[in-house]
Design a protein around this nucleic acid. Structure first.
Length: 909
RNA sequence: GGGCGAAUAGCUCAGCUGGUUCAGAGCGCCUGCCUUACACGCAGGAUGUCGGGGGUUCGAAUCCCUCUUCGCCCACCA
């Protein structure tokens, strides 16, 4: 604990040890916080990563945000629970294992269902949810003792309870509909899992001859191959072009089938030719038309999207896209292809493998969503539920208003098997939905067969806010931690997961699972492309942790993002993206090193905590930094509360770097060295404000803040900043006078430094400086002693050594100089600064400088005159605004006057 | 096609309820410094028609309209 600190902060040397120590001490358990076991709870459900996932920047961002919030609320005294888990991720995981099998030249059908599922379990246990360890590497303070897996026995029981009770309530049903089918994954998908992407395709105009040879009807289609399954052509009943044809028959080319022309309101006469080929087995709209007109459905495709036996021989076995070419070619050859046009339209793709989805008619299980959506919408409309940023509520509303039933059965092997048993006895043939496994038909005792399908992965995820707490049992955890509070998610899973959890929470427990939904942005590269493995533009968060530290990673993610905006990182230049965070950590490290090393420096060794200081012992600088610290506490706390993490980061950054390091630490150096008076007060103030700032920063940069905080004198070895109480605003620290007066000190110092730089005064060379409140010649009529000015000078007098030291002065004189030649500056309040430089300076150049500055102020003054001369302004603007504008005018005028007098004295032309 | 958002310094972005944060921060750039916490640093400096146009107002980066460009969500015009 007291080993000397290296001048360069090395995060990798301490982060993992600190994390291990936090875990050993059990600090992530809700009751470990400073609020104790009876504090009000605060709960965040972690979006469970896939068991087989490898950490990417999206996880990094998502979990950083959650960790910031959970650490903030923990320190604020709430019983903070961040509940982690992993998702079995049906399709994704099954695909991974299938690919492994493929390397052995096997398919899942070769090994069989039971053996395949065993292999998936083996694989999953072998990857060991490594993703969770990776989340630890970035500092995530989740309560790992509660980690769940969506296929755990408990959660599986919850899934079954949910399914069965929804079935009993009439909200789960089996139906024969067109669903989205992935021909590669060989399973049904929900609407949400079929990602629509705008694609440049074509539209073909095909001629279907009338059966009696009296002409033809032209239909337009984007999927010509489906014509093999056409069973009608539909037109709008009011469409004059086609009205006489309604009821007549067409001879379907290539297939030579007679199909009727039917009239249907759903047809838009304005699109295409106004005549639509109807393929009930391969298009959802056509399916509905088919229903209305009792048309047969002819399924012309196999599960892997090849042409089936229902089509003419020569097409059978062709891939759907080959078949498309073949169909078009044959129409062309037969003179039946009228034309082809480019056509931009939305095509569905499997969200797991990217394959073009095929609408397919099949038997699936569905959840009736409208009754679940209604209360979920209501909770948003009544303000119970809010979105950050607010506009995401529009997406939520829109989705819920147009919600369609949720297809939940998947033709996969990895997942929760659907708890439905079919009696095999022909006489009974009963379907039983059951909470417990069945061996025999409860009705006839005959043999039963369980439904082969599994449930959509999201059917377990949507229960997580309560299934992870023990539901359907009424556990103590459930009573304590449901409902939760914040949900932090990528916008991509708003519908998959976030909205459905709200519906499930309301349905099963009668309460929304959380009230604040924070949807953060997406991590993108400098060309604003989403980071992804396939694009190869990803950044490995673990590499960043290794090279820059977890704190730097977190800082960069948090500071680069305002509410709901994307985070831009440069995959080709990690330095550009993460150096700022690393540099900040290093800055803190060194500030800490300085403060701590001076604590036990003789002659006043500090064995214990720094002593309490009395208000009357404080210098102006002390009062200033305390007031600044207090403002930062207020600012940062409010920013965290409003999810404005970047603002919290900026506020603490500004305080630590610009205020504490650049000014206060520099200011107290003379007091610390030797036996200067006030040294112990400075030490106490430094440590007190540094301590507070570290706490404010801890949610964002947990490691460095802990590393430093633990080293404070008088700290018990077991104390951790992660459970230290959050700093409170202190009205006694408010000190407007100190803020204003010290700011003037800073302005004087900066002005002198500016003059030194302007005239190239060597850094080592001390100069003299004169500061006066009125630049007028002694005895001139303009010389009026302003009481405010006198106070300002008095403050400067008190901080004389500060000015002398920081501006490298041999002497500071408060008053006029008899000399003329030197560098001049005028502060905004009219305070005059003069640095005599004699021959070292070029008078002409100084005249130009002062003239330019006077001109600038002159512009401001005349603009201000105009504004105040405007009767409308004076009459209509609020009195305080007018008064403020008047003050500005007189300040600028004064400043300019002083400048002009200086030019006069210098003898400028 | 419907809904929503964004455009501010070379880059990434703050700027919230119109006027004291009003034109800002970080990075980058220029100048000078190895000043005994830190060169991952210190000090000083340059940089903008606040996307174009119109309007409301005493006053607009901020509110309204419009155009342009970019992005997100949704969608069975085949």
């Amino acid at each position: 604990m007291t080993e000397p600190l290296a001048p360069q902060y090395n995060p990798s040397a301490i982060e993992s040890a600190l994390y291990a120590w936090w875990q050993e001490r059990g600090l992530f358990a809700p009751e470990a916080g400073p609020g104790g076991p009876d504090a009000p709870p605060y709960v965040i459900m972690m979006p469970p990563p896939n068991v087989t996932a490898v950490l990417h920047m999206g996880h990094g961002l998502n979990n950083t945000v959650q960790d910031v919030l959970i650490r903030f609320e923990r320190m604020r005294g709430r019983r903070a629970l961040w509940l982690p888990g992993t998702d079995h991720a049906g399709i994704a995981t099954q695909n991974v294992v299938e690919r492994l099998l493929a390397r052995e030249g096997l398919t899942r059908f070769d090994v069989g269902r039971e053996a395949f599922v065993e292999r998936v379990w083996a694989y999953v246990s072998q990857t060991g949810a490594a993703i969770l360890d990776q989340l630890k590497a970035i500092g995530s303070s989740a309560d790992w003792a509660r980690t769940y897996f969506t296929l755990d026995e408990d959660l599986s029981r919850a899934v079954r309870e949910a399914f069965v009770s929804l079935y009993e309530a009439g909200l789960v049903y089996r139906g024969h509909y067109i669903i989205n089918w992935c021909p590669r994954c060989l399973t049904a998908l929900s609407n949400e899992e079929a990602e629509k992407t705008e694609t440049d395709g074509r539209i073909w105009y095909l001629r279907y001859p009338l059966a009696d040879g009296s002409g033809y009807v032209t239909v337009a289609t984007t999927r010509p191959e489906t014509m093999l399954g056409d069973t009608a052509v539909a037109v709008h009943p009011e469409d004059d072009r086609y009205r006489p044809l309604i009821g007549r028959e067409l001879r379907l080319p290539l297939v030579d089938r007679l199909v009727p022309i039917v009239a249907d309101d759903a047809i838009d006469p304005a699109f295409g030719t106004g005549a639509v080929k109807v393929t009930p087995a391969h298009d959802p709209a056509d399916f509905e038309i088919g229903r209305r007109h009792q048309l047969p459905s002819i399924d012309v495709m196999t599960p892997d999207a090849r042409i089936s036996l229902a089509a003419p021989d020569r097409f059978q076995g062709l891939d759907r896209f080959e078949a498309r070419r073949r169909v078009v070619a044959e129409f062309e050859a037969g003179g039946l292809l009228e034309k082809t046009e480019p056509h931009r339209h939305a095509v569905g793709h499997c969200y797991r493998c990217g394959t073009v989805v095929e609408p397919r008619l099949s038997d699936q299980w569905f959840v009736r969503m409208a009754p679940l959506a209604r209360p979920a919408l209501e909770k948003y409309r009544d303000g119970t539920l809010r979105f950050i940023p607010e506009r995401r509520g529009d997406d939520y509303t829109q989705w819920l208003e147009g919600i369609r039933d949720w297809c939940i059965s998947r033709q996969l092997w990895w997942g929760h098997r659907i708890p439905v048993w079919y009696c095999q006895s022909d006489r009974c043939a009963r379907t039983t939905v059951s909470r417990t496994d069945l061996d025999a038909c409860p009705a006839c005792g005959g043999p039963v067969r369980q439904d082969e399908d599994v449930l959509d992965t999201w059917f377990s995820s949507w229960l997580v806010p309560f299934s992870s707490l023990g539901w359907p049992d009424r556990t103590a955890d459930l009573a304590t931690f449901y409902p939760g509070h914040s949900l932090v998610s990528a916008p991509e899973i708003l519908f998959f997961w976030v909205a459905r959890m709200i519906m499930a929470g309301l349905h099963f427990l009668g309460e929304v699972p959380y009230t604040d939904v924070y949807l953060h942005g997406t991590v993108r590269d400098t060309q604003h492309r989403k980071m992804s493995k396939s694009l190869g533009n990803g950044i490995d968060p673990l590499e960043v942790v290794e090279r820059y530290g977890a704190d730097a990673l977190r800082y960069s993610l948090v500071s680069g993002m305002s509410v709901g905006t994307d985070v831009i990182l440069d995959p080709d230049d990690l330095e550009a993206s993460f150096a700022a965070g690393r540099n900040f950590a290093n800055k803190l490290w060194n500030a800490g090193r300085f403060i701590l090393s001076n604590l036990d420096r003789p002659p006043r060794p500090l064995a214990g905590a720094p002593r309490a200081v009395r208000r009357d012992e404080l210098t102006l600088a002390d009062r200033w930094i305390i007031a600044r610290c207090d403002l930062t506490v207020r600012e940062a706390t409010e920013a965290y509360e409003k999810f404005r993490l970047n603002e919290a980061a900026a506020a603490v950054y500004r305080f630590l770097w610009s205020d504490l390091a650049d000014w206060y630490i520099e200011q107290i150096k003379p007091r610390l060295y030797g036996d200067a008076p006030g040294g112990d007060v400075a030490r106490a103030v430094a440590i007190q404000t540094f301590d507070a700032a570290l706490r404010l920063l801890h949610p964002i940069m947990p490691f460095i803040t802990e590393a430093l905080w633990r080293r404070f004198p008088g700290r018990p070895a077991t104390a951790s900043i992660s459970v230290a109480p959050w700093p409170r605003p202190d009205n006694r620290a408010t000190d407007a006078a100190a803020l204003a007066e010290f700011e003037r000190v800073q302005q004087v110092v900066s002005a002198i430094r500016g003059i030194r730089a302007e005239y190239g005064v060597p850094p080592g060379q001390a100069v003299r400086a004169f500061v006066s409140q009125d630049g007028a010649e002694p005895g001139s009529s303009a010389n009026r002693a302003a009481p405010a000015g006198a106070r300002a000078l008095a403050a400067l007098e008190r901080e004389r050594t500060t000015v002398e030291r920081l501006a490298k002065l041999s002497a500071l004189t408060l008053g006029e100089s008899g000399e003329r030649v030197g560098g001049h500056a005028v502060l905004p309040d009219g305070t005059s600064v003069f640095v005599p430089l004699g021959d070292a300076i070029d008078v002409g150049r100084e005249c130009l400088r002062l003239g330019a500055e006077a001109d600038r102020l002159g512009g401001l003054v005349s603009a201000q005159h105009k504004k105040l001369g405007n009767v409308q302004f004076v009459a209509r603007a609020p009195a305080d605004v007018v008064a403020r504008e008047r003050d500005k005018l007189s300040a600028w005028a004064e400043q300019r006057e002083v400048l002009l007098r200086k030019r006069e004295r210098l003898g400028c032309g």
